[in-house]
Amino acid sequence: MTAIVHLALQLDPTKLDIVPALFTEVLTATRAWPGNEGLEVIVDDADPAHVIVVETWASAADHDAYAAWRTTPEGASRLGEVLAAPPVKTVFSERIPLAL
């Protein structure tokens, strides 16, 4: 079942100028990971230092494998260089069927 992951990030406002290049570097590896079906970064209209990375995965297991890789030396990223607070990750894999 498809999983949607929201990674909420509070960025250091003094480092916003390096965010696009750093995100391109970090998220290129995310996008290339098996099971990743897409991602985008959305920016809070009221606070440009608050962003959410929205990732779509073929399954929660695919995301779990990716997340485990990110904890290894090979998967480590420079994302921490621009964070003002720890990231908050939420995984959505259950659906409520709607009769519309």
Rank of each mutant, 00 (worst) to 15 (best):
P73Y: 14
T28W: 10
H63K: 11
A8Q: 09
G38V: 04
A29G: 09
A61V: 02
T90S: 12
D12W: 02
P34V: 09
D64K: 09
H63R: 13
P97Y: 15
G38C: 06
V51N: 10
D45W: 09
A76Y: 07
H63N: 14
I4Y: 03
P86M: 12
A49H: 06
D62I: 04
F92L: 12
F92E: 01
P97H: 15
T72Y: 08
E81P: 05
T90I: 08
V51P: 03
T56E: 13
T56G: 00
A46W: 09
T30A: 04
I52S: 10
I42L: 15
A58H: 10
P97W: 14
P97L: 15
I42N: 08
R31Q: 14
S77R: 08
I18F: 03
A3I: 03
Q10S: 10
V54F: 06
A76D: 09
A8M: 07
A58M: 02
E37N: 13
I96T: 14
H63G: 07
Q10P: 03
D64P: 05
V5K: 05
D12L: 00
L22E: 08
W57Y: 04
A3N: 00
S59L: 01
A49C: 02
A67H: 13
L27T: 10
H63M: 08
M1S: 11
A84K: 06
E37C: 01
V41G: 02
L16V: 04
N36I: 05
A8V: 01
A85L: 09
I42R: 15
D47L: 03
A49K: 03
I42W: 10
T30V: 10
G38I: 06
S93G: 03
D62G: 03
V54W: 07
I96Y: 15
I18G: 02
D17T: 08
P13Y: 07
T14Q: 09
A60K: 12
F92T: 04
L83V: 02
I42V: 15
L100Q: 13
T28H: 09
G80C: 06
G38A: 09
P48D: 11
R70P: 02
E37L: 13
N36K: 10
D62S: 12
A67W: 02
V53Y: 07
A60H: 08
T30Q: 05
E40A: 01
D12G: 00
H63E: 14
A21T: 07
A29M: 13
I4T: 14
R95F: 05
Y66P: 00
P73H: 15
V5S: 03
L7T: 05
H6Q: 09
V26L: 10
G75R: 15
E94D: 12
D62A: 13
